[in-house]
């Protein structure tokens, strides 16, 4: 209620010029402008409401929603990739261990195989040598037997020649054989 006082003060101080300009009234309370203001307000605010309701707010909501889903999707993706990378790391470790084990096995196998081969070769060689030894022994024995056989013939011929030289008579072959048998039996 203090408002009218300064208002009239200024009116007194400023003579009559502004009074005629705004009809002496206080513009916000000049009711003859109300309908016009309401009409334009309804149009402007109606337009604003329509634009916000139909275009702006659904769009902003969509943007925010898209961003939220995108973020969570990206996070999920990152999480999935991390898990995958960890799995790949574990798989790598495992394959490395497998490969090492395999390499060790192969080396062992090769070593065993080589040892067996060498063994087999050695045995074959030994067998061959033994065989040859046996053959040689058999040959020696055969030769010995042969030689021993010819000794009796030589002895018989020599004995016959000695008897002939001593007695001038060719000894009877049967008697000679008996004598030789006796001599062999004496030994």
């Amino acid at each position: 209620m203090a408002q009218p006082a300064p208002s009239t003060d200024t009116h007194q101080a400023t003579v009559v010029v502004p009074a005629s300009e705004h009809g002496g009234g206080f513009p916000p309370f000049e009711s003859h402008t109300f309908l016009s203001q309401l009409i334009w307000l309804a149009l402007a605010f109606g337009l604003l409401y329509y634009l916000m309701d139909k275009v702006a707010l659904p769009r902003i909501q969509g943007i925010l929603h898209d961003r939220a889903t995108r973020l969570s999707k990206d996070l999920d993706e990152a999480h999935r990739m991390k898990t995958e990378a960890e799995a790949a790391g574990a798989a790598y470790e495992k394959s490395l261990q497998d490969a090492q084990a395999k390499a060790r096995a192969i080396a062992q196998e090769t070593r065993t195989a080589l040892a067996q081969e060498t063994d087999a070769k050695r045995k074959a060689l030994e067998g061959e040598l033994n065989e040859r030894l046996a053959a040689s022994e058999a040959t020696i024995k055969a030769r010995t037997t042969e030689a021993m056989g010819s000794v009796r013939g030589i002895a018989s011929e020599t004995a016959a020649a000695i008897v002939e030289r001593l007695t001038g008579q060719t000894p009877d072959q049967a008697a000679l054989d008996r004598a030789l048998d006796r001599a062999a039996g004496a030994h």
Binding site: T33, F34, S36, Q37, W40, L41, A44, F45, L48
Partner: peptide
């Protein structure tokens, strides 16, 4: 007694709508 007019007030209202849009 109501004067129907497009005033500077109406212009500011639509300017506000324009800025917000």
């Amino acid at each position: 007694n109501q004067e129907i007019a497009f005033t500077q007030s109406s212009l500011y209202m639509f300017a506000a709508v324009g800025i917000i849009a």
